[in-house]
Design a protein around this nucleic acid. Structure first.
Lengths: 411, 411
DNA sequence: AGCAGATTGTTAATTAACTTGACAAACTCA
DNA sequence: TGAGTTTGTCAAGTTAATTAACAATCTGCT
């Protein structure tokens, strides 16, 4: 069924069509011609000429030559004008901050990443992010004025309107802290705040493994586990921004105790924390493994397990495969519920690669509806550590572009 | 983020606004005035007068007087014209067929239900539905011509465009059988085909427990278990129509064998089949219970367990509570994933009531994110056995109305 | 080279849908 | 009874789209 999409309030037709065209250009990797735009939106070429002229006049887009044509006049390709300014994407993770600076075409001009601890007080944390941001700008000889918009991802449920996180499990000190307001005041620049997994989905959809896919899920497997959902090219947020919180699905009714208070949560079995803990337990039990070379035992990290597994250690491999299996069961459930075209795995643990991914694929293959599996692809993120910060760029860029397209429209 | 909704192809603005207005009137329980419509769509009153005149001229809607006004001229309330014709909604379940005939305002004029076996060949099944349909028309002194549209729900993943089911687990004989084509040929009337759980969601949203909710899930707990999702007022279908297939979520890794081939599926623990099976096992084990009064043991049904539980039998109660608990765990996962505003339980087993619902609520409360639980309501379907067939009516009615609004528009 | 055929993009005239602003209609309240 | 308020309509003006013709620029063929 298609109930007709409601136009935004104060529906101005040209407004809608112009911005639709802008979005289409933004997300077409190779650019679009006027004719192609007209076809996709359902307008005539004549109308599209008008709209495109508007966008050109505002400097939002520009024309580039093209040579590939089978017959007839070659189309003039339209692209976002990269000279429009700079965009910054910031991914605030549990244990790191990743920051990228791009131009308006999404090309990464610089990237930095620092270790970080989200459990510290928000003001202190944001100070640290502020320093990183300003240092990077200085290094690039950029001023605050050169930045048109900034996207920020955080690892918790976001209230987009309020610009804050609500009751976040892994960053309780941030509950209702006015993140967007604080940063906007500091940087004097429009800020878009979103959940990091949602941004990962958006990033991989716009620039990564999931280009052109219709319904995707991005699974961030780091210290914790979260999912970002993109339905029909839109972030699906849920009613209170808590959609995609798969880390606390109950996998074993009386399994290991989770710090959320329940038992047998997915995170206690498949996250980075779970892998490290199981490795430490294996050593304590005295199993024959290279993991025991690391001292003290508490220092064993997921990265160690991954490295040692790659060197052929059976115990380490077994831990990773088992984690993958549990994650696979959860993902299989998600596939039955969402029936997406693609699932992209990102975050630190996902970097382990096929050793981790294959048991996931196996379980999904085994446990999901054949109809759903047939149309499904499962892959790792191609933007790697940048998935979320590039998603933040997309969000900020979209914001900046639509503003630019309006701003100069006064005729 | 809001990427601007794309208008349908051949975007005719008036077309969109007219149909948006029509949908708003259709789903406003008490009707709407021109001013209210204008406010919701974002047009002026003058423009709305034009659009409403169009709809009035086509006979799609009609005006009714209203008296409630605080001050100023009382608004003229607009409603769907019930005289537009008749709509039929048919819910083809695994073990029954429910058929309702309504007028254009969704008022039920007649309802019939017969036992049924979906495992028999599709042609035979559709013959049976055809007979039921024609008998009911005859009884009501209606002719085929009086029916403007028919909605049909089936218990499997539907390819809406093709009008058939794809690889359905519980009705394998129907795979790719041209259901819509067959019925359209027989009845010479537009048919809308959809999944029964999706229709349940739609029905409860339009006329039942979930009116005005934004994101809802309808859980059909009958012989099997399936979910229908309504996200932002639209059926969420997934890419291959397999969204919401929660019956085969893995709940216990090495649990009871399911007829889908896996082990520990939700359906083996919480569906109608599971409840009956466990009751039979309890009697075989010689537990002290009223269930043992039923002979032969194989004849014990879910309905028996429900009835005996209501009379205070501990064993029967325990079976139902345990089923509710498992379902609750699955639903808790779904809540973390979807973050809906409401979950509505329908289907035969859900009719048990609070004995079944309370353990579900408890588990969800315990296992889902607090942010998601706070905004969530869990209830039983108010349309009872009619949820899905009323959803089919909504689908068919929407189809018929939008056609009617266009048909007479030639000026 | 030169022309047919194809496709893209533009222009001018026309049409359709919406807005503006004024006003009539129908109620409540003092 | 009249002031205040809200709904609905009307006529004129505005804007964004369509239609239809044409210019521009390529490929392919002879």
């Amino acid at each position: 069924m298609t109930f007709y999409h409601r136009l935004p309030l104060n529906a101005n037709v040209k407004y809608v069509n112009k911005h639709t065209a802008l979005d289409l250009i933004l997300f077409a990797p190779e650019g679009l011609s006027r004719v192609e735009l007209a076809r996709q939106i359902g307008l005539t070429r004549a109308a599209m000429t008008q709209i495109v002229n508007d966008l050109l006049a505002s400097g939002t887009i520009h024309e580039i030559e093209s040579s590939n044509s089978k017959s007839g006049r070659p189309p003039i390709i339209l692209e976002i004008n990269p000279q429009g300014g700079h965009i910054v994407g910031i991914d605030i993770g549990a244990t790191h901050v990743n920051l990228v600076v791009t131009d308006f075409s999404g090309r990464v001009l610089d990237e930095v990443e620092i270790p970080f601890n989200v459990k510290e007080p928000p003001i202190q944390c944001l100070d640290q992010v502020d320093r990183l941001f300003r240092e990077t700008l200085a290094k690039m000889n950029l001023k605050l004025d050169d930045i048109e918009a900034i996207g920020v991802g955080v690892p918790g449920p976001v209230d987009t309107k309020a610009g804050m996180v609500i009751a976040p499990p892994i960053m309780p000190g941030w509950d209702r802290f006015p993140i967007r307001e604080t940063l906007e005041k500091r940087w004097g620049c429009p800020i878009a705040l979103a959940n990091d997994a949602e941004l990962g989905a958006l990033g991989e959809w716009a620039y990564g493994a999931a280009r052109g896919e219709k319904n995707i899920a991005y699974i961030k497997v780091g210290t914790g586990i979260g999912a970002g959902l993109l339905l029909d090219g839109q972030i699906y947020h849920g009613i209170s921004g808590a959609a995609g919180e798969i880390g606390h699905l109950t996998m074993i009714e009386n399994g290991p105790i989770c710090n959320c208070g329940n038992a047998g949560c997915l995170e206690t079995l498949a996250g980075g924390m779970a892998i490290a803990r199981q490795a430490q337990e294996a050593v304590r039990k005295g199993q024959r493994t290279m993991l025991s070379e690391i001292t003290p035992i508490e220092a064993i990290t997921t990265r160690d397990v991954s490295a040692i597994a790659r060197r052929g250690d059976r115990v380490a491999q077994q831990i990773i495969v088992q984690a993958g299996r549990y994650l696979g069961i959860a993902i299989a459930g998600m596939v039955n519920l969402f029936n997406p075209t693609m699932i992209v795995f990102g975050g630190g643990v996902a970097q382990i690669g096929d050793l981790f991914l294959q048991p996931i694929r196996d379980e999904v293959q085994k446990r999901s509806l054949p109809a759903a599996v047939r149309t499904l692809r499962i892959q790792t993120a191609v933007l790697r550590r940048r998935s979320s910060s590039m998603g933040a760029v997309v969000l900020a860029l979209s914001m900046a572009l639509h503003k630019l397209a309006e701003a100069k429209e006064r005729r």
